[in-house]
């Protein structure tokens, strides 16, 4: 099939795909450009000069919002969610390889966690904390709320990984006398490491950008998406775009670093195979 000439169907679909990519990235690039708007410029084109005025404005005291500390909170929360998601999904993935009591209900509970509307989770955790008499905060209630969104993704990914994982590798290690910990540490873990990094990326970015689940659960101190949401209704200057550009570039950086790590691990393993 690979030797065939490109058909008309290919060119039509290629055009369709290109339009889809333009649809995905076009608006994003519009606010990227507009964040360099001159000091007198507004929320729409044309550019009224080019400046870093609005980025500088971000670092100053705002009428509404405090980006520095809300960014720090979102970043920390993202790291916490990422670590817990990776560890818990890995453990659950290992558990699902064998039969255990309640495996099917737990699997469907994970699916339910994906489909239950985010605002219901937000409301439920908010009201539950209120009734127990606990004060909601980003590191307790919002942390739990985010996990209900990131864990099912992690579990489903690990489920898919272990579905394709042949047990003969572990059996070979065991026959060579490895303990179950050694088998896990030196055979299973290196093989699934790239997927675990992927799960970590999901955990971090989904938490870092989560809004609906944080709404009722963040307590006194806002996370970054809540700040941005507050700005959409109050701020009418391109400082909003500058913030959008900064957080989007930050997300891109995180994604790039993660992909870099996955490629690096893959290369290192290939080299390891070459020498032994």
């Amino acid at each position: 099939m690979s030797g065939e000439r490109r058909t008309a169907e290919f060119w039509i679909l290629a055009l369709f795909f290109a339009l889809f990519v333009l649809f995905l990235y076009g608006p994003l690039s519009a606010i990227l450009i507009l964040s360099f708007q001159g000091p007198g410029g507004g929320l729409t084109f044309p550019l009224n000069g080019v400046s870093l005025h609005w980025f500088h404005n971000l670092t100053q005291q705002q009428a509404v919002g405090d980006f520095g500390s809300s960014f720090r909170r979102s970043f920390l929360l993202g790291i916490m969610v990422m670590l817990v998601t990776v560890v818990v999904s890995l453990l659950a993935g290992l558990a699902f390889r064998r039969k255990f009591l309640g495996a099917t209900p737990l699997f469907y509970l994970s699916i339910a966690s994906l489909v239950v509307p985010s605002i219901i989770i937000s409301l439920g955790i908010g009201v539950m904390f209120q009734q127990i008499g606990l004060r909601p905060s980003w590191y307790t209630s919002a942390f739990g709320a985010h996990l209900t969104w990131t864990l099912p993704f992690g579990v489903l990914i690990m489920f898919a990984v272990f579905n394709r994982f042949s047990p003969s590798y572990e059996e070979a290690a065991r026959d060579l006398g490895a303990t179950s910990w050694q088998t896990f540490r030196h055979v299973v873990l290196p093989m699934i490491a790239p997927m675990l990094i992927g799960v970590g990326l999901f955990g971090f970015t989904l938490s870092y950008d989560e809004f609906a689940r944080t709404l009722m659960t963040a307590g006194t101190y806002n996370t970054l998406p809540l700040e941005i949401y507050g700005m959409t209704t109050n701020v009418t200057t391109p400082v909003l775009y500058a913030l959008g550009t900064v957080t989007t570039l930050f997300s891109f950086l995180v994604i790039l670093l993660t992909l870099g790590a996955i490629v690096w691990i893959g290369r290192r393993r290939l080299r390891g195979q070459g020498t032994t």
């Binding site: 064998r98 255990f100 737990l106 409301l123 539950m128």
Partner: peptide, 28 residues
């Protein structure tokens, strides 16, 4: 032991989803 450990490995997921999904929904 491994059969037991499968149960133990599933505990964290069950606890988190129980506390932050099942309990809030029942609360609602």
């Amino acid at each position: 032991v491994t059969g037991l450990s499968a149960h133990l490995q599933a505990v964290p997921l069950a606890v988190i989803l129980g506390a932050f999904l099942l309990a809030p929904v029942m609360m609602i």
